[in-house]
């Protein structure tokens, strides 16, 4: 950390008792040479789809298929997501931000505790990396390029910084050629990255050929 930030305008960070215990163990085991943090991250990454972004994908699919649900989601995402029974342990407040023809949204925060894992699953390792956060704010278009997402120049990119109280869920644009699709089918097009804003929903035309 910078070490000289005595600003009282920002809330300081807080780790739960459980997180303190896990971090203490990690520090101890790393210092004794029993674990290797990069290898640990790699091991975790192999499991990170296991909570799965499926919960969030169902929310997005319903927002696409059901205009009333979409309105409820935009008005009060916490309540609309709770309709599925997905609620955070810490009671965090969810806000949905919607992509459209003119705007693309993406979300950053370096703390994994500031990631809506009840809907998105485990955070990807890059999401927690300091370079991602600083660059996403400074040069979102460049970061998106690296993720293979090339947006037209005229499209505005909004970057949302999660706080301890507010977590964001990006509602990607519904792909063309999905008229009349069921929610289940639509949900398969919704990737984790598309709900962070570092990706787009899958294109069904490309998906057919890939399959």
């Amino acid at each position: 950390m910078s070490g000289h930030d005595h600003s009282h305008d920002h809330d300081h960070s807080e780790l739960s008792d459980i997180e303190l215990r896990v971090r203490a163990l990690e520090t101890l085991l790393t210092e004794k040479g029993y674990i290797d943090p990069p290898a640990l991250d790699e091991l975790i990454e192999t499991y990170e789809t296991k909570i799965g972004p499926k919960n969030g994908a169902r929310v997005v699919a319903r927002a696409w298929a059901d205009p009333d649900y979409r309105d409820r989601l935009m008005k009060d995402a916490t309540a609309a997501i709770a309709e599925f029974g997905f609620t955070g342990r810490q009671g965090e407040h969810m806000v949905a931000v919607e992509n459209d023809e003119t705007t693309h949204n993406m979300v950053v925060c370096t703390l994994c505790s500031c990631y809506p894992w009840t809907v998105l699953g485990l955070p990807p390792v890059w999401y927690k990396s300091p370079p991602y956060r600083s660059r996403a704010v400074r040069d979102p278009r460049g970061v998106l390029d690296e993720f293979g997402v090339h947006l037209p120049e005229e499209k505005e990119i909004r970057v949302w910084d999660s706080t301890a109280e507010v977590r964001y869920l990006v509602i990607p644009e519904r792909p063309h050629g999905t008229h009349g699709w069921s929610e289940d089918r639509l949900a398969e097009l919704v990737t984790r990255d598309s709900m962070i804003g570092t990706g787009l929903a899958l294109d069904p035309a490309k998906r057919e050929t890939a399959a």
């Binding site: 950390m1 910078s2 070490g3 930030d5 600003s7 920002h10 809330d11 300081h12 960070s13 807080e14 780790l15 303190l20 215990r21 971090r23 203490a24 163990l25 520090t27 101890l28 210092e31 925060c109 370096t110 703390l111 500031c114 927690k128 300091p130 956060r133 910084d161 999660s162 706080t163 301890a164």
Partner: peptide
């Protein structure tokens, strides 16, 4: 472990929200 937990707690409280929490060793 208790000492390390205390150190992490202090590091978190000294870190503005949104910054990565790091333990100075």
């Amino acid at each position: 472990l208790a000492d390390l937990q205390t150190a992490w707690d202090a590091a978190a409280k000294a870190t503005p929200h949104g910054q990565p929490i790091e333990l100075q060793r």
